[in-house]
Simulated scan of single mutants.
Amino acid sequence: MPSFDIVSEVDLVEVKNALDQCNKEVGNRYDFKGSDARVEQAEKVLTMYADAEFQLDQVKDVLINKLAKRNVDVRCLEYGKVEKVSGNKVKQTVTVKVGVETELAKKLVRIIKDSKIKVQASIQGDTVRVTGAKRDNLQEVIALMRKEITDFPLQYQNFRD
């Protein structure tokens, strides 16, 4: 039985490289001279620091540009609220979402079942496995997912015949 997995993965090495490039650019820019603007990483959580909120927005723009150049899908970022630190300094946490959450996985399974394509979809941890008798049916499901889910990055891996 042919099958494939619907997953959502982010290359954390590329995120780290983009973060280093972002910090280098922020350190070299004239409008950030003398400020404490930077981005730090702790596993899948990025923390942006700046002296004011408008600088935080500029740091976010630089970060998004660097991530996009390194082929990291920016739809996987979830922004926290802007918090005040000491004085007038601000920070914002950004979570890198990895894996298909159960709510999204249930939505994917529902879309597949409602499509009446002759395949079975099952949730396995943070992936959704789709199994069918024909390869063409599986390709139909991939095309359907690309059309239906536009707000979250999905990859289709582990294709077995």
Rank of each mutant, 00 (worst) to 15 (best):
M1E: 15
P2Q: 09
S3Q: 08
F4Q: 01
D5Q: 11
I6N: 00
S8Y: 01
V10S: 04
L12M: 15
V13D: 12
V15Q: 02
K16A: 15
N17G: 07
A18V: 03
A18D: 06
L19V: 03
L19K: 04
L19P: 06
Q21C: 13
Q21E: 14
Q21N: 13
C22E: 04
K24A: 15
E25W: 14
E25F: 11
V26T: 05
N28H: 03
R29H: 06
R29E: 10
Y30S: 08
D31W: 01
D31V: 08
F32H: 04
F32Y: 06
K33W: 13
K33T: 10
G34I: 02
A37K: 03
E40L: 10
Q41C: 03
K44T: 12
K44Y: 13
L46P: 04
L46A: 02
T47I: 02
Y49M: 04
A50D: 00
A52G: 13
Q55C: 02
L56S: 00
L56Q: 01
D57W: 04
V59T: 08
K60L: 11
K60T: 15
D61W: 09
L63E: 08
I64D: 10
I64T: 14
N65S: 15
N65T: 11
K66D: 09
K66C: 10
K69C: 10
K69D: 10
N71A: 09
V72S: 01
V74K: 02
R75C: 00
R75V: 05
C76K: 15
E78M: 05
Y79W: 12
G80A: 01
G80N: 00
G80V: 02
V82Q: 00
K84I: 12
K84S: 09
V85T: 12
K89C: 05
Q92C: 13
T93P: 04
T95Q: 14
V96D: 03
K97W: 10
K97E: 14
V98N: 08
G99E: 05
E103D: 13
L104V: 07
L104A: 04
K106P: 08
L108T: 08
R110T: 13
R110S: 13
R110D: 14
I112G: 00
K113Y: 15
S115H: 06
K116S: 08
K116H: 11
K118I: 15
Q120H: 12
A121P: 03
I123H: 01
I123F: 00
G125T: 04
G125E: 07
T127V: 15
V128L: 00
R129N: 08
R129H: 01
V130Y: 01
K134S: 14
R135M: 13
D136T: 12
D136C: 03
N137L: 09
L138W: 07
E140C: 01
I142H: 00
A143P: 07
L144I: 13
K147R: 15
I149K: 07
T150E: 14
T150R: 07
T150N: 10
D151L: 00
D151H: 11
L154Y: 06
R160T: 12
R160W: 07
D161Y: 14
